[in-house]
C-alpha cells in the first residue's frame, strides 16, 4: 500500500541535510508551509540555500531561520515585505548571500528542473543588469537570456487537501509556487489542512499528482483559514 502520510512534523522533516537547497512555497501568507518551516528550525539543518519569492517577514518562519544563521544564501525575486528587518540586517552585514531572479524566471527555472530541462532562453531580463553575466542569444531578431534549471534537495509546500498517495489539492490563490516546487525536489514534503480518503479527491482538482510528493503531514492553521471554501 502506498502511504505517504506521516504522523508528525518531525517525521516529515527527518533527514534534511546540512547544505541543502530548500524550495519554499507560498506567496505572501497564502500557501506558505509555515508549520514545516518551524519544523525545519527544530530539525536543525544548516548552511541552507533557501529558494522562495520573498525573504521573510518579521522574526518568524523563514526570517527566524535566517536569524538563527541557518541560511547561507537566499534565491528570491522580491526581498522586500512589510517587515524585512532580519534579511536586511544580515544582508547589510554580509552574512547572507542574495541571488535576485525575476519572478517568472524563478518559477520557470524550477519548472525546468522538474521537467528535466537543464536550461532555457527567455526574453525576461535581456539587456538588463540581471541578464548581464549570462549567455545572451538572438532568436528571430529578439535577444534572449539563457537561464539554468534550479533544482531543490527539499521542497516544502502547502496544500488544502491530500490523500495517502500524496495527491494535492490547493485552495484559492494558495497554489502559487507550490505545484512547481513540488515537482522539482528530491524530497517533497507537504503540509495540508485535510487528509481525504483515496479516491475522493476529484482527479481534475488534483493540481499536484502524488508522484511528485514524498511525505504529507496534516496541520491545523486554525481560525479563518479553515472556513469551508466559498463561505467567507
Amino acid at each position: 500500500m502506498i502511504n505517504k502520510i506521516v504522523a508528525t512534523v518531525a517525521e516529515a522533516l527527518a533527514g534534511v541535510k546540512d547544505g541543502s537547497t530548500v524550495l519554499i512555497g507560498g506567496f505572501g501568507s497564502v500557501g506558505q508551509p509555515d508549520v514545516l518551516i518551524e519544523g525545519l528550525i527544530e530539525q536543525g539543518a544548516t548552511n541552507l540555500t533557501a529558494v522562495l519569492n520573498n525573504a521573510g517577514v518579521g522574526r518568524v518562519g523563514v526570517a527566524r531561520l535566517m536569524e538563527l544563521g541557518r541560511v547561507r544564501k537566499i534565491i528570491c525575486s522580491f526581498p522586500r515585505s512589510s517587515d524585512p528587518v532580519v534579511f536586511e540586517t544580515l544582508y547589510r552585514e554580509g552574512k547572507i548571500e542574495l541571488e535576485i531572479v525575476p519572478q517568472g524566471t524563478l518559477a520557470e527555472r524550477i519548472r525546468a528542473a522538474g521537467a528535466g530541462i537543464p536550461a532555457f532562453y527567455t526574453a525576461t531580463a535581456a539587456g538588463t543588469l540581471l541578464g548581464k553575466d549570462k549567455e545572451n542569444r538572438e532568436f528571430d531578431g529578439r535577444q534572449y537570456v539563457m537561464e539554468r534549471a534550479l533544482k531543490g534537495d527539499v521542497a516544502l509546500v502547502e496544500a488544502w487537501e491530500a490523500d495517502r498517495w500524496g495527491n494535492l489539492v490547493y485552495r484559492g490563490s494558495g497554489a502559487n509556487f507550490n505545484p512547481v516546487m513540488a515537482m522539482a525536489a528530491e524530497l517533497t514534503i507537504a503540509q495540508v489542512q485535510h487528509i481525504r480518503e483515496l479516491g475522493t479527491l476529484h482527479p481534475h482538482m488534483i493540481m499536484t499528482p502524488g508522484v511528485y510528493v514524498n511525505r504529507v503531514v496534516q496541520v491545523d492553521r486554525g481560525g479563518d483559514w479553515l472556513k469551508p471554501e466559498g463561505e467567507a
Binding site: 497564502v30 518559477a107 484559492g172 490563490s173 497554489a175 502559487n176 509556487f177 505545484p179
Partner: peptide
C-alpha cells in the same frame, strides 16, 4: 467577507469575478 486564501500580487485581499480560474506560478 474577506477570504484569507485570496490575495493579489500586492498581497491585498481580493474577491473572484464570475469565470475566474486559478493556476500556479509556472
Amino acid at each position: 467577507q474577506e477570504d484569507p486564501w485570496l490575495i493579489n500580487a500586492g498581497k491585498q485581499l481580493i474577491t473572484l469575478a464570475k469565470g475566474a480560474s486559478f493556476v500556479g506560478h509556472a
